[in-house]
Simulated assay, not measured.
Amino acid sequence: MKNSPFLLSLLILLSPLLSLSQPDTEVYLMDLRRSSEGLVVEKPVNISSNKGYDNQPSFWSDSESVLYARNVEGQTEIARYYPESGNTLIITNTFGGSEYSPTLMPDGRISSIRLDTTGLQLLYAYTFRGLDEVLVPELKIGYHAWINSNDIVAFVLGDPATLQIINTASMENKIIGQNIGRSLHKIPGSSSFSYLDKSSDEWEIKSMNPISGESTFLVKAIEGSEDYAWTPKEEIIMGSGSKLFAWKKDGEWVEIADLSSHSIKNITRIAVSPDGKKVAVVGD
């Protein structure tokens, strides 16, 4: 049967909304401690406990609160959770747009990617009261990480998507790679950053010096996974299914937790607190 003009028009109108639909996910916070046998993860708590898409956790510099993207009446806003009190503060209330990947900036503001219902996608800076300004006006950034007070490393959408270093003061940008994953991180205790290289069938986590552009292989990613985080002691934590694994230099991936008994599965995004005592994961 041929599609009617009315049906085609309806599909065209609905397609942007369908493309913005997100899975139901939750953010879990748990303790991370060290034992004689290695890292131990325990006491998981669902800190979002909210219907819809709750995702992309990151920690405040004092490790005392967690930022994440929280579903609020069908769009995502920047939320800040305080483990001590169990309170959640909704920082933004954006009309006609959603915030993703909230990240503490070196100057104390919050950087976040905003996707408007018009399709406009830009990196913004937000104050604690939700006031905003565009940080990078010309590039459609998907993911980002701060590597110093002015520079970010970013996954920039395009054909192909590229890895770029962008100076938010001068607006100068430099393409340094492509075929990368979404997980970008400044390496603790270093001026370098890490990224996921997807240029071969076996994905690899690599580090890069932002000044020289020199790239160094660190470890092969766990098959099928692309999200990871660094501990302050320069270990990498990565998830697969309901399990968490840890890696340290010159070692192998070691399982440190199976969260299936807590009904946590399909682990994706991961964040470790700056003091190394907490880990946040996203699961469903």
Rank of each mutant, 00 (worst) to 15 (best):
residue 146 W to F: 01
residue 60 W to S: 15
residue 106 P to Y: 07
residue 250 D to C: 08
residue 255 E to K: 14
residue 282 V to N: 12
residue 183 S to L: 02
residue 162 T to F: 01
residue 172 E to Q: 04
residue 242 S to N: 10
residue 76 T to Y: 08
residue 121 Q to V: 00
residue 19 S to A: 09
residue 1 M to V: 01
residue 105 M to Y: 08
residue 53 Y to W: 13
residue 199 S to E: 04
residue 203 W to V: 05
residue 59 F to G: 14
residue 20 L to R: 08
residue 235 E to K: 15
residue 65 S to E: 12
residue 150 N to K: 01
residue 272 V to P: 12
residue 36 S to N: 12
residue 3 N to S: 07
residue 34 R to I: 09
residue 14 L to N: 08
residue 135 L to G: 00
residue 145 A to T: 05
residue 261 S to K: 15
residue 107 D to V: 02
residue 64 E to Q: 12
residue 169 A to Y: 03
residue 278 K to M: 12
residue 29 L to Y: 04
residue 281 V to F: 13
residue 264 I to S: 13
residue 210 P to M: 06
residue 144 H to P: 02
residue 48 S to N: 10
residue 175 I to D: 04
residue 258 D to L: 13
residue 118 T to V: 03
residue 82 Y to D: 09
residue 196 L to K: 00
residue 221 A to N: 10
residue 163 L to W: 03
residue 270 I to S: 15
residue 256 I to G: 11
residue 235 E to M: 15
residue 47 I to Y: 10
residue 90 I to A: 08
residue 172 E to A: 03
residue 246 A to H: 14
residue 158 G to K: 00
residue 205 I to N: 00
residue 230 W to G: 10
residue 204 E to H: 02
residue 48 S to C: 10
residue 228 Y to A: 15
residue 42 E to N: 09
residue 135 L to E: 00
residue 229 A to N: 13
residue 220 K to M: 10
residue 282 V to A: 15
residue 11 L to K: 14
residue 143 Y to N: 05
residue 276 G to S: 13
residue 90 I to W: 08
residue 183 S to G: 04
